[in-house]
Amino acid sequence: MRIGVITFPGSLDDRDAQRAVRLAGAEPVALWHGSHDLEGVDALILPGGFSYGDYLRCGAIASLSPIMTEVIDAANAGMPVLGICNGFQMLTEAHLLEGGLIRNDHGSFVCRDQVLRVENASTDWTSGFEAGQQITIPLKNGEGGFIASDDVLDRLEGEGRVVFRYVDVNPNGSLRDIAGISNERGNVVGLMPHPEHAVEPGFGPDTAVAMRSGVDGLGFFTSVVRRALVEA
């Protein structure tokens, strides 16, 4: 399986995402925002960072990049697409996901190992988890407050499209503790925390077993790989 990771001007975590793809047993393909070519990949990751310096709004200018035309077409055709942090912001700006992200309610950048509850374990990116499972992955953002109208929030919850919720602490003022959501089909998932930083022992969050041994993020990438194998 080949998974494309798109680099935008100001992306930071593109190479971490490529590494996560490799550790999950797939082939990472580096894609460039200025191209119109997805190079035949089977899935896409929009990585974290500060594309265009967060000018205008986080992810807004990147969502107008040339390659986004093809990303939107592929997403609507069912290709798995994962947006992490800035990538999540791009997906909302591109209207592939509903709601929006605003500055953290406490006004400060936050960086912590965050406990999440997997609310929906049937999306392309979460099928390797159990519904209700708690995972710990890093979170680092300044504008991660998820908001939407009450109608949209009710619909997202009613349709099982709240994929992740913050547990123990709401780190950024996100409404209803929402950390990540999906589209109706479940192929497009966006979240503020960073699964790609918890994929290799020695480089992840601390666990009860050992320092930095947390690899809860690997399940995102193995989920999409396993689904591709099942469908093949």
Binding site: R57, A60, L64, E93, G100, A148
Partner: peptide
């Protein structure tokens, strides 16, 4: 559509 995001 570009200068503002009607969600926020």
């Amino acid at each position: 559509e570009i200068l503002s995001n009607s969600v926020i």
